[in-house]
Amino acid sequence: MKHNVVVTTHHKTGTVWMSTVFKAIARSVGANYVDFWTQYDRLERALRPPFVLFNHDSTFVRHAGVLRRPDVRILHLIRDPRDVLISAMHYHRTAEEPWLLERPPGNDNAPYRERLNALPTEFDQYVFELENSTSSTIEAMLDWQYDRANCLNVRYEDLWQDRSMELWTRILDFLGFEESEQEAGRTAFWANSLFGTAGRTQRSHARSGEAAQWRHKFTPDLARAFVERFPEALQELGYEKDDRWIEEIEREAMVHQA
């Protein structure tokens, strides 16, 4: 490895996928794999080079200095916020993560999962998710500093389509993996991708992983609710040039009603 590596994602942007891939890569090349939040209070001691540091929500707080280290290269993964919303809502309805099941401290509200499942329609559940957990995820994607010279910003959708692993090989090269290490990197990527070896086994965490699920799930009402909450997010993240995508959804809805 020519550089130490930082891999940073956001909730429902390929977090489990990338953590599994990079754990396998670190093991293959003899690097020290470090989970950012598990090691947060002792991170300086945990970062023994060569290391692969993984952060599942792209918030570094008092450890932001690691992103400026001259010996570090960063992979930052984002996803279409509309698909983040869909994936997060369905995941949060059944997931067993403690924060979903516990009553918020100092708050009389029911646990998150209970409140979500109590809502009468899928539309209401999407809006609840949009205004709560997914709101934080979208804001974090918007707040990321995208002009870091040592960072490669990659879309989940582009990785999902990368069956030839051409993009993945460019990523490995940018991160500083030697040519002799890149084959192990490609093997790890394919073995842990839903369209590769992992697709032939049961993966309880992921629903499908497909890109652009929003085209089949968004109604005109949900599209308008999304834009009301995040009017410029899709343009800022490069997923849309304008709001004409809403008109396409409206036309599609009219066809189904006819």
Rank of each mutant, 00 (worst) to 15 (best):
A233F: 09
R203F: 07
D147S: 13
Q235H: 02
T201Y: 13
E178K: 14
F128H: 04
S204F: 11
K12T: 04
N192C: 04
R93P: 01
V5G: 00
R69S: 15
D35S: 14
L101G: 09
R203G: 08
M254F: 12
R79V: 05
W99Q: 10
L47G: 11
P120R: 05
E97P: 02
H205V: 15
E228C: 13
G209C: 01
A26L: 06
F123M: 14
S58Q: 06
T15C: 05
D158M: 13
A110F: 12
Q145V: 08
L75Q: 00
G209E: 07
G238M: 08
R48P: 02
E250G: 00
M141T: 07
A188Y: 03
L100E: 04
R79D: 01
A26N: 04
R79E: 13
S180C: 04
N117E: 11
N192V: 05
S87W: 00
R244C: 09
V127Y: 01
V154P: 00
Y146N: 07
Y126H: 13
T94P: 09
S28N: 14
F51H: 01
R45E: 14
N132I: 03
H63R: 06
H56M: 05
E131I: 04
W99G: 01
S28I: 07
R27A: 13
N4G: 00
R207V: 12
P105L: 15
R207F: 12
V127M: 08
I74T: 11
D41R: 14
V29W: 00
V84K: 07
M89V: 09
L53C: 07
D71K: 09
D162A: 02
E102I: 04
G209A: 08
V6C: 12
F22C: 03
V72S: 00
I25A: 06
S180H: 11
E179G: 04
F22S: 07
L175P: 12
A31W: 05
E236F: 08
P220Q: 10
D158P: 02
F51D: 00
A88H: 13
P81M: 06
S133Y: 14
D221N: 11
A46K: 03
T8A: 11
K217F: 11
L100Y: 06
G14I: 07
S135M: 13
Q235P: 00
M18K: 02
P98I: 01
T201M: 13
L175T: 14
L85F: 02
M165L: 15
R82I: 08
R69D: 15
R79W: 07
W144H: 12
P49C: 12
R73Y: 05
R62P: 01
T187I: 12
E247L: 05
F218P: 08
L67A: 08
I86C: 03
D221K: 08
E248T: 13
V29K: 04
Q202M: 10
F230P: 02
P231Q: 11
R163Q: 15
H76C: 04
G14Y: 05
S87L: 03
F22T: 03
F230H: 11
R244I: 06
E102M: 06
E252N: 13
E252T: 09
E102S: 13
A88W: 01
D108P: 14
T94C: 04
S135F: 12
S164A: 14
I86S: 04
V72M: 06
D80G: 10
T201E: 09
D124P: 11
A31V: 04
N153E: 09
K12C: 10
R229P: 03
